[in-house]
Nucleic acid binder design. Sequence first.
DNA 1: TGGGATAACATGGGATCAGATGGGAAACAA
DNA 2: TTGTTTCCCATCTGATCCCATGTTATCCCA
Lengths: 152, 152
Amino acid sequence: MFLSTTINGVDAKGRVSVPADFRAVVRGGPFDGIICWPSFDGPYLEGGGQALLERYQALIEEMDPYDDARVAFERAIFGAARPLAFDSNGRVTLPKEFADHAGLDTKATFVGLGSRFEIWSPERFEEHKSSAQSFARDNKRALKLPPRPGGV
Amino acid sequence: MFLSTTINGVDAKGRVSVPADFRAVVRGGPFDGIICWPSFDGPYLEGGGQALLERYQALIEEMDPYDDARVAFERAIFGAARPLAFDSNGRVTLPKEFADHAGLDTKATFVGLGSRFEIWSPERFEEHKSSAQSFARDNKRALKLPPRPGGV
DNA sequence: TGGGATAACATGGGATCAGATGGGAAACAA
DNA sequence: TTGTTTCCCATCTGATCCCATGTTATCCCA
């Protein structure tokens, strides 16, 4: 599971270290790296392992072949996604379009979201974080844990 | 089940012993440690075993992928959560942001809550405890036993 | 029931290792 | 050739591991 938030540096070559915990999640998969695309929902990147893309593919294939939404999702996700391979130190090189879309300059914030993650510019993420927290606080009742006898 | 309240010391490296009873709860699980995150609801940490996070993940994955509430919860919980592994003596190292959020300096109060637990600064917990007790007294009728098939 | 022995737990410090980062050389494309 | 990309090595910092020690709770036996 992708967890926690990490800020890593982006060097002059556009390289950024993927947090070691994130690398551990995709380790052993078919592709030694991550798959990223610019979010169509905001100025950040989305990413995950190859398994994530395969799950999205399964979701999309349940839609009608010429459903407008299907075509839009296909273009926005599969059309925009690129595999980013790890170098021997666990870094990836961000394509310039990706860095531009997310406003990544010298620092990048990796945000783990369970089955996937996001990459933000640290400044932009700070702005969004507080609103996400207050939204979560106001809506916490929507997240009900079913009681399990015995706990844990 | 996480039970009872324990105060343990936090050393100069930010390490704190997890109460032995709490360690026994997560022993045998997939990850030898606990998973904690700063509560979005107050100046304390929430935590549990990996099983707890997986229950949250299952809940969240029932929501649509780009539902605003889903993304807010993902960022507030998974984005903030970190796995804290036990060292050979059953201690974990608190990340600095965590200690800051909860105001943990030299002592930490572990509060067992059944399926999860909280970590407080002892002073803040004392203040909170009295108000929590009066809140519980005022709302005691909200604690309902679910009907159990077959009676008892 | 009291006291001593023993084991479990909590704590402190030092050494070692992994991760993040910067720079340069080699391979490749224009 | 020139610029770009990929690969590899060096370094630094911080986290993790390991050993030593004190303290408390538990157990056993007198």
